[in-house]
């Protein structure tokens, strides 16, 4: 017997055998529960948020809700703290993304140049923070940034930079949180870009070497172009994560000092649970979603197209 396999009857539009119809029933039965779960817990709440964002109401007093149409959205763009949160979110996303990608991809390229076994040991250690809960990361870095006992100040003091404001100065607080986010997220970039690097054929590096290309030339002409698909996926995942940042800020500063680290998620959270303005908070949540779609929508369509080939 050769390994030629008889073709299974495929469901076609012309003739759907009872066999195929039964298959279709099984498939629907298999997919439906998961699709329903996503629909109920993700899509329905989104619809609810859209409707609720046009009302002014507080929790537990839904019967006193007043329909205000787009007023909540107008209020957002008239509130300086809201706009500050939007700006903070964009700054945080861009800065964190740029630093994470540069450091993460740089380290993975360095690791690839080591002997495989040494590289793997380093990679395993470098990846340690990847599964640590963000709230614990913020605990760790609260200690690192402690003005009296923190290691950051100790190290900066050694080089005469003890005046660094850290988390308590509104000029440096957001940057300090970015540093923490970089600590937490670079390991993830290293893992994914390393996986992407392993599929680049060795012959291409060989060829580059023969052509006399230096390390920098090889990086920009061979490695990065072939890594583009991985980089797009990484930017998508990391960028959307950074744009939604909540846990880290909640644990490190709570949005302070003077709202200098308030992000859209933190702002929405505070409006909902501290100021008890549910309708307005829903509007902020919807604006966050729209911001995500505007920033990352084009990339997402690209990456979905790339997936099919």
């Amino acid at each position: 017997m050769t390994s030629s396999t008889p073709a299974m009857p495929l469901p076609t539009r012309r003739r759907m055998s009872s066999y195929a119809r039964k298959d279709l029933r099984i498939a629907v039965f298999l997919i439906l529960p998961a699709a329903l779960a996503i629909f109920i817990v993700m899509i329905v709440p989104l619809g609810f948020a859209l409707v609720a964002s046009t009302f002014q109401y507080s929790l537990g007093q839904e019967d006193k809700a007043v329909f205000v149409f787009l007023d909540n959205y107008a209020k957002f763009f008239a509130d300086p703290v809201a706009l500050r949160s939007l700006l903070n979110t964009v700054i945080f996303t861009v800065l964190s993304l740029a630093l994470c990608m540069t450091i993460g991809v740089g380290i993975s390229v360095l690791l690839k140049s080591l002997a495989p076994r040494t590289g793997n040991v380093f990679r395993a250690i470098f990846a340690m923070p990847v599964l640590i809960s963000p709230i614990i990361v913020s605990l760790i870095w609260r200690y690192m940034y402690d003005p009296t006992y923190g290691l950051i100040y100790y190290v900066l003091g050694l080089v005469g930079l003890q005046d660094f404001g850290g988390l308590t100065d509104s000029a440096t607080a957001l940057f300090s949180i970015v540093v923490t986010d970089v600590w937490h997220a670079v390991p993830f970039i290293i893992l994914v870009s390393s996986a992407g690097l392993t599929v680049i054929p060795e012959e291409l590096y060989e060829a580059a070497r023969i052509d006399g290309a230096g390390a920098a030339r090889t990086l920009f002409s061979v490695t990065l172009p072939l890594l583009v698909k991985t980089l797009v996926v990484l930017i998508l995942i990391r960028g959307t994560d950074a744009f939604r940042v909540f846990d880290l800020i909640y644990g490190l500063t709570g949005g302070g000092p003077a709202n200098s680290t308030s992000s859209l998620s933190i702002y929405a959270y505070k409006q909902a649970y501290e100021n008890n303005q549910m309708g307005f908070a829903m509007a902020v949540a919807v604006i966050t979603l729209i911001g995500l779609v505007i920033l990352f929508g084009p990339l997402m369509r690209n990456s979905a197209r790339g997936r099919d080939d």
Binding site: P11, A35, I38, M42, L46, F48, R244, F246
Partner: peptide, 29 residues
């Protein structure tokens, strides 16, 4: 099962991953 809409459904699942947690939290709460 070689479903015709398999890719569309699968992409639909992926979009779920990008919804901001805060915009799910408030309504679910």
């Amino acid at each position: 099962f070689q479903l015709r809409f398999a890719n569309t459904i699968a992409n639909g699942f992926l979009v779920g991953k990008l919804v901001p947690v805060i915009s799910m939290l408030l309504p679910i709460f």
